[in-house]
Design a protein around this nucleic acid. Structure first.
Lengths: 196, 196
DNA sequence: AAAGGTAAGTGAGTTTTACTTACTAAAAAG
DNA sequence: CTTTTTAGTAAGTAAAACTCACTTACCTTT
């Protein structure tokens, strides 16, 4: 998955950025910081990456690769579509909780640059998101999910809930209770909040 | 609301940024661009604003002021808590649809700078969000909303759904069907997606 | 083993951009 | 009429992203 055939300098640069992002936000990390941390010169960064953001996206892509691999595994046991959706919610929240750097990148840093949306990282996410839509559509065919609902809207509610449930904890470095957030989201979205 | 007693230079600067953000993202707008568009010198920006982001937050604050004023009005007719929540969803989506610059700032630009969270703009949002929680809690007391659910989680699902429902349309400049998105979100979140 | 080619890496620039500061002109205040 | 405050300018600085001409080292082929 992670291409170990990268030259050592390139590996060092990727690792350096990942390390730096652990306690600092992307915009405050300078190329000079990255080079120093990696033990290479600034020029080398531009040998391997088109620019600073391109480097970010490649770091992100590696994480997403691993994330999607794990999601796939987590889905194996699930039979019903609702179980699958719940497993995705759990995996996502878990991943945000465990890999805060990855979470910050995906939920915060990435959006405000149009070129993200043509990056490999974004294309991987698109695949994942298409997959979720497939599960929802299967759920509708199975009569697990109301056929009156718009599948895309369902997906957006779920993904939005996951993001919103994690983002403030990510930003303010607070604990994320994965199981509780998962239960809360699924309780609400699966059964609704209305009493009657 | 908008303090017309601002000196003309300051007004011009605020207006210039708002104009520039209509087709460009904040990070790609330079202080030199802002100054040129406003017809003042760069130095003047720093007379009135601590830095470039501070300017952004003040522009944002003006929009939020107006937004919250409108939300308040939209809530007047609603009797039940669920109606109120639906009105908030509608107002929010409407506002994102109509004021795309505001939407971009709030959904995209703002997060990735820690100092936003101590800005006036953010404090206004906090008030609004606290208000939503109040409505949910009233709904639980009224037995409109299930008392087994976590009110904060409900709010997060709703807000997340709104964001997610709008953000891709904002980014890719696609049409936002306010009524449809509102219906979709409320259908799902109020009654759940599960068939049984 | 010598030559040539290529990949990895360097380091000294350049340019751009956010921000500073010392100044001026004019209006308000005393 | 003088002083002070306010609105605004112009030139400059520092830091950051990015460039480019160059070196070193290794691999391949004759």
């Amino acid at each position: 998955m992670i291409d170990e055939k990268y030259p050592p300098g390139k590996r060092k640069i990727i690792k350096a950025l990942r390390t730096l992002l652990e306690d600092r936000e992307f915009n405050s990390v300078t190329t000079s910081d990255i080079a120093k941390t990696a033990g290479v010169t600034e020029g080398l960064i531009y040998k391997y990456f088109a620019n600073k953001r391109d480097l970010l996206y490649q770091v992100l892509k590696e994480h997403i690769d691993q994330f999607l691999f794990k999601v796939e595994k987590d889905l194996e046991g699930s039979l019903s579509s609702l179980d699958k959706l719940k497993a995705i919610v759990h995996s996502s929240v878990y991943s945000y909780a465990k890999h805060r750097v990855f979470a910050k990148m995906l939920l915060i840093e990435v959006r405000n640059s149009p070129d993200y949306f043509s990056s490999d990282a974004c294309n991987l996410i698109r695949l994942h998101v298409k997959n979720i839509l497939g599960i929802i559509e299967t759920g509708i065919k199975n009569c697990e999910i109301k056929e009156t609902l718009n599948p895309i809207a369902i997906r957006e509610v779920l993904l939005g809930a996951i993001e919103q449930g994690c983002i403030s904890k990510i930003i303010f470095n607070r604990k994320i209770d994965v199981d509780k957030i998962t239960e809360d989201i699924c309780d609400i979205v699966f059964n609704g909040l209305s009493q009657n």
